[in-house]
């Protein structure tokens, strides 16, 4: 229907959808929190003010103060660094190892493929929380170890997606045509297979970034991540929990922040054309 007549008076307008703009805004803001927290929070996230514990939100403390009199807003803002760094590390681990394994399996085929895929099956057969807990037992508690544990779990997802993408692209006619016009294996891989397979891998990375933040906050909540008094979102929720009846906002706000960031990551991933596995 290429030759369709445009109806007069209707001007096609192309704005990015509102949700997506919002998602990028959220991610941008949180990123800024992580890089220059001082710009957003004037109060000290670690040093409490004696006698000012558990205050309700006010102009001075927009999100109130916690059980040690620390400004909650400052703690949430400074917590971004911990969470984003952790998620970044986790996604990098998954992306690097998973994609390498997947590319290898997809491009080589045969026994390499079979071995990698059985490994992926195995990693997927163990519930992800248990798998990351096992890694944490091996490495010990701490924020970096938690991030590695979360990344380890996502290796299987990246491997499976990148393998299937490579297989899809390899079967594509334009790849065959590239071989047909005399392309060498590596040249074709570099010019055609990689760029076309990486789009979905990138989308998965965005999705996994959100999942990693979620998983890290869970580990933090359970007490396996960053040790107190580090401001970490999951830990903030755990700390606030003790004052739930009197100061519910201490628990509520960090959770809302996590929710917003994860939701944004999902939305961005969708806009990148995620092919879910």
């Amino acid at each position: 229907m290429s030759g369709a007549n445009p109806v007069a008076g209707v001007v096609p307008v192309r704005l990015p959808p509102l949700g997506l703009t919002l998602a990028w805004a959220v991610v941008g803001l949180v990123l800024a929190w992580a890089v220059v927290p001082g710009l957003f929070a004037w109060q000290d996230p670690l040093q409490g003010i004696a006698g000012r514990q558990l205050e309700a939100p006010s102009l001075e403390h927009p999100l109130g103060t916690d059980g040690l009199g620390r400004d909650m807003l400052a703690r949430v803002i400074h917590g971004a660094r911990e969470s984003l760094l952790g998620a970044f590390l986790a996604v990098s681990v998954g992306l690097v190892f998973g994609t390498t394994l997947g590319l290898l399996a997809g491009a080589r085929g045969g026994i390499v493929d079979a071995a990698v895929m059985r490994l992926v099956d195995t990693l997927l057969a163990i519930p992800s929380l248990l798998l990351s807990l096992s890694v944490i037992i091996l490495l010990g508690f701490g924020s970096i170890n938690a991030a590695i544990a979360v990344g380890f779990v996502s290796v299987a997802h990246f491997a499976r997606l990148s393998r299937s993408e490579v297989l899809r692209v390899r079967r594509a006619e334009y790849v065959e045509a590239a071989f047909g016009s005399g392309g060498r294996f590596l040249a074709v891989l570099w010019r055609h297979v990689l760029p076309n397979a990486l789009t979905s891998v990138l989308a998965l990375a965005a999705l996994q970034f959100g999942s990693a933040i979620l998983a890290l906050s869970t580990l933090g909540f359970l007490g396996y991540g960053a040790p107190p008094p580090t401001p970490e979102w999951g830990l903030l929720i755990a700390e606030g929990r003790d004052f739930l009846a009197t100061a519910w906002w201490l628990t509520c706000t960090p959770g809302v922040v996590v929710l917003a960031v994860v939701l944004s990551a999902e939305r961005i991933s969708r806009s990148l054309g995620a092919r879910r596995t």
């Binding site: 594509a172 006619e173 334009y174 790849v175 065959e176 045509a177 590239a178 047909g180 016009s181 005399g182 060498r184 010019r191 055609h192 760029p195 076309n196």
Partner: peptide, 23 residues
């Protein structure tokens, strides 16, 4: 075989699939 490809070329059925969308 690669060198030989200069002599015989194939044109595919589907022009939508045989051209890399990113080039």
């Amino acid at each position: 075989l690669r060198q030989f490809r200069r002599q015989v070329q194939l044109v595919f059925q589907n022009p939508f699939a045989s051209l890399d969308p990113r080039q």
